[in-house]
Each structure stands twice: as C-alpha cells, then as structure tokens.
Computed example of a mutant assay.
Amino acid sequence: MTAAAAPPASDDEFRFLDFDALRVGRAGPLPAVARIAVDVADHRAVSGLAFDGGLPPEIVALHGAGLNAHSFDPTLLALGRPALALDLPGHGRSDWRSDGDYRPDALAADVVEVLERVARRPVTLLGHSLGGLTAALAAAMRPDLVRRVILVDITPGVSPARDTGSVREFIQGQRDFSSIDEIVQRAQRFGIGHERAALERGIALNTRLRPDGRLEWAHHLAHLEPAPLTADGEEAQPYTPIWGALVRLRSLDVPVALIAADAGILSRQHIAEWEDRLPSSAVVTIHGSHNLHEAAPLRLAEVLDGLHAKRSDAAT
C-alpha cells in the first residue's frame, strides 16, 4: 500500500501520526503520545515524546544531527513498545546550549540527567548517527540504567570530514528557503530519502517560518558558525575514543549492537573495524539510506524488536 500525501501544514505537532501509522501498516487505535520536558544543567530543558505515556519506557531513542524526536515516530509506532524519543539539546523543542557545543560528550551528560529521571528500569538506548555516539557515552557513564545499546548507521570510526560531509553540507550549506518543496528537492539531491510525502512530513516538523516569510531550520546547528559537530582542529577521526566506551559496556555485560544502512555512511571498513573491536556483537544491515528510521521504519522496528528482546550479544 502506498501512503497518502502528507497532511497540510498546521501547528499540531502530532498531525502526522495517522500518516506514519499508515506507512508502517499499524492498525487500530494509536498509542498515547505526550510531550514531556526534563530540566537539566544550566537552566535548560530537554524535551521528548513519550509513547504510551505513563508507562516507563523500555526504549529511549536519540536522533541524529539536524533531526528531532519526531524522526522516530513511524519506527516507534511500528515497534509498539513504551518508548521515549528525545529532542537532543539544540534540536526540536529542547533548549539550545549557550556554548553551541553539540559534540557527543556534551550531549551525553544531558541524556544521563534525563535517564536518571525517567528510567525506572534499565532501558535499551537507541541512537542514530550523532545520537548513537551520544548513546554510547551516556551508557558508559551510567551503565546501571541501560540494558542494551544499539547504534544506527554510525561507529566511532567515522571521519566527519570524509564520511559525513554531505550531511553537514545539507544542514549548513543553505540556511533559508522559499518553500517546503525547495527543501524536498534539495534533500533528494543529497540522497536524503526518496518518498516525497515522508520528506514533506519530516521537513514540516523541522522548520519554522521567519517574519520575512522564508523557512529556516528550527535546530541550532543551522544557525552556528563554524560547524559545531567536530572536534577542535577538524581531526580525521575525533570520535575514536568512544570505542573505549563501547568496549567498557561489553566488559560490564551490557550488549551493544550495530544496525547499518546499505546506502548509508558506513563502509565495509567501518563495519569490519566494529567486528574486530567488538567481536560477537550483533551487526545487522538494512536496505535504505542513512536515516533508516525514516527510510525503512518498519524493517528497522522489526530488527529493533529482535535485538531488544535478546539478553546477550549474537552476531546476525
């Protein structure tokens, strides 16, 4: 079945849930989804979306750079488990950091504060791209709050300059737009999604209208100079130390897993390094682009469900 075109613009942030449910074939009543906020350091708040609100989350999801918690809506609707999708600081409805620091180590401290408030039992910590690196560090800081860590299309071996340059260029290369259609066309040129209705939905939830009538990204990254996602000096592989966090988790019997996109940013060499450093950890490859939670939400949910249900690592 082909999903219908995205609904017209409105101020209701939940207006796409029926559309998302249709995409993943979810029938019946939708779960309760509520907006929550947790106070963190520096008088800031981290916002998020609680699925099956009132129940403690089994899964806490962290999106990638330039996205927001709604990116996970289709996947979490398909998964059907109590979950919390966070807006990382500087994204969605979470407060911007005054220092403009959105590297994984800075974000992880905020995520830990949220987990300390909401995790009534150990959770599966799911992270896509920047959110995956953040998840690894947050879990290593408080392994008692985490039962499993799953990274989506990211490893600490990536080079921002070599492997994620197109993502950064998409986020920061153009700052304002005349219409959603213009952004859709730009996204398609960058290979970010192919289903037009899904792209329109994601863009509508991630932009805001300026007083001059032009659209701009709602996240802080698009308003910063220089690019804030890399370490000082544009190191070739600034995230290499995060391997240590993943190895430590394994030593503490916290399973880790990797879900790769076959048309994403990870090469065979990245996956081979993962398998060498983390032998016997689960590795699954899914057909789709880097943003798997938007490009292949149903398949991603199926894989997540299987990994979440396991208690020990197993290569797939």
Rank of each mutant, 00 (worst) to 15 (best):
Gly100Cys: 00
Ala45Asn: 15
Val46Ser: 00
Val46Thr: 02
Ala108Gly: 11
Leu79Ile: 07
Asp95Pro: 01
Pro56Asn: 10
His43Phe: 12
Glu113Ile: 00
Ala50Asn: 12
Gly53Phe: 15
Pro74Met: 11
Val33Leu: 07
Gly48Phe: 01
Gly64Ile: 11
Leu77Gln: 07
Ala41Gln: 15
Leu30Pro: 02
Arg81Val: 12
Ala65Asn: 09
Ala37Thr: 14
Asp105Phe: 03
Arg103Asp: 10
Ala50Asp: 13
Asp52Ala: 11
Asn68Trp: 07
Pro82Arg: 08
Ile59Lys: 04
Glu58Thr: 11
Ala37Gln: 12
Val46Arg: 00
Ser71Tyr: 05
Pro31Lys: 06
Leu55Asn: 15
Pro56Asp: 07
Arg97Glu: 05
Ala65Glu: 04
Leu76Tyr: 08
Ala34Gln: 10
Gly48Ile: 03
Leu49Glu: 13
Pro31Tyr: 07
Ala108His: 03
Leu107Met: 07
Phe72Leu: 03
Ser47Ile: 11
Leu79Asn: 12
His63Ile: 06
Ala83Gln: 15
Pro57Ile: 04
Gly54Thr: 03
Arg81Ser: 15
Leu67Asn: 15
Ala45Ile: 14
Ser98His: 14
Asp105Lys: 10
Asp101Trp: 05
Asp52Asn: 15
Ala34Asn: 11
Asp87Leu: 01
Val46His: 01
Thr75Lys: 03
Leu88Trp: 01
Val114Trp: 11
Glu113Thr: 07
Pro74Gln: 05
Leu88Cys: 05
